[in-house]
Design a protein around this nucleic acid. Structure first.
Lengths: 251, 251
DNA sequence: CGTTACGTTGAAAGGGTTCAATCCCTGTGG
DNA sequence: CCACAGGGATTGAACCCTTTCAACGTAACG
């Protein structure tokens, strides 16, 4: 709670997520300019929508604290989960082409975001070419992430999917300087199942197995990785998410 | 052959793909400026690589004629196919973030492309804000396409996947002003299988069924859609690809 | 303290894969 | 011009992983 309050007030200049978020590579002065167009509002509550599919596009949003899921529905009414977003991640890029949000974004926990009005961001990007590249970079990473998720869906079995999911979350926490062998994860097993193209039952069974084998425990909202090596091996290929690909040095 | 030759020489101003490709919404003068940085080379031959994963990033490429596949390999050496690209489509956006191509692009047929050196494109984008937005739009569409592909992989069975694939190809041809109920498709069934997360055997069996039911015939490289309505119904949700989403008016 | 939604566990069923054999088309070389 | 090689496509049968269905347990919240 105290943490959220701090986040609400902080500026880019003293934000701990500089290395991961938007401002990467900007000078102090540039960051200051960016800071001036950023809007900060009270945190979102659990299950609150940041934007919904169909909403007119106005801003991109950088997450300061909490977790969000980006999702939509099939024509049949089934939920589709496209991704989970952590502090430093940016949501809303899906709407750039059509000026309308294609997906919805929901807070899975108390979550605070920085709002970046896109018109102002565009104007500023003309003055600061590096900022423009930064936005390209965010979009490009999103494309690559999508491809990697498709790889998971086409080439991996249920065990590997879950191992990869958990390991990728751990890596993302690691990259943000958080504890990564033991962390709080406010994501429902049900949502993970949807994200991974599985059923809740399958996820439950595999988590039970991982627990028995003393590799990972995920009870309530606490994840504990007991055997990092085994988990990574199970995941098969080292997962590269937006902020954690060892193969590529993100600009 | 004659068609390819023409493509090689044409400029954006007299290109039939204006509505679909990069220049959408640019004024004559702006289009002319864009035209000056576009490089045109001899067409690629079948199975020739435009770029390979690991190559340093220099340009985006707009396809003028032919077909390309964008692909990579799993750590285990299996091929992953991320998408097929038709005239008017742009490939290479995966490399914007890391300055290195994450995937490879191969011509599946004689294919000609327009090369857009990214540094020059960036410079020009500062002068022409609309061009900058155009690039954002292309990236954003790529993100949305990826999500829709994931939806296909998580929510659809084999029959629906193939129906959707065929229908989406038809729509893309339609949007380009080509015949869409009967067209040439230089894509191996094997590659479609990989793209859809299926085996060649499954694809073969389902295509046989679609042929028997007089819905679609795909022999050699010729696709014939005999029952448009049935195909669309089979596909379930109307597929929205980069250039054909009825729900959204792409800027 | 009841209600509701999430999570767990078991048994049965099914869709797609796997494996293997055969066919077919294309391109190549004698 | 024909024979042969090689990769892709087809077809059949057995298998297996995941889903489905159903029942029960459990945590959170009003």
């Amino acid at each position: 709670m105290a943490e959220v309050k701090t986040a609400f007030n902080a500026s880019c200049l003293n934000c701990g997520l500089q290395k991961i978020c938007f401002p990467t590579g900007l000078s102090r002065a540039e960051m200051d300019s960016l800071d001036h167009i950023v809007q900060r509002k009270p945190p979102l509550q659990k299950n609150q929508l940041l934007f919904a599919a169909g909403d007119p596009f106005k801003s991109l949003y950088a997450i300061r604290a909490g977790v969000m899921k980006v999702f939509s529905f099939t024509d049949g009414g089934e939920e589709i989960i496209h991704g989970f977003y952590l502090p430093g991640d940016v949501v809303g890029v899906d709407a750039l082409a059509g000026k309308v949000h294609m997906f919805s974004a929901m807070a899975l926990d108390a979550t605070s975001v920085c709002t970046l009005p896109f018109d102002e961001l565009s104007d500023l990007s003309r003055e600061i070419p590096h900022l423009n590249k930064q936005v390209f970079s965010i979009l490009s990473k999103e494309v690559v992430d999508g491809r990697l998720h498709s790889e998971l869906l086409t080439k991996k079995n249920a065990d590997q999917r879950i191992a990869q999911f958990l390991w990728s979350m751990a890596e993302r926490f690691k990259n943000r300087g958080y504890h990564y062998l033991e962390f709080r994860l406010s994501i429902l097993h049900r949502d993970v199942a949807i994200y991974l193209g599985l059923t809740p039952e399958t996820v439950s069974r595999i988590l039970a197995k991982l627990h028995q084998d003393d590799i990972v425990t995920w009870k309530k909202k606490e994840v504990q990785i007991h055997n990092e090596e085994a988990l990574r091996t199970l995941a098969g290929t080292h997962y590269c998410d937006s902020n954690s690909c060892s193969k590529v040095v993100w600009l």
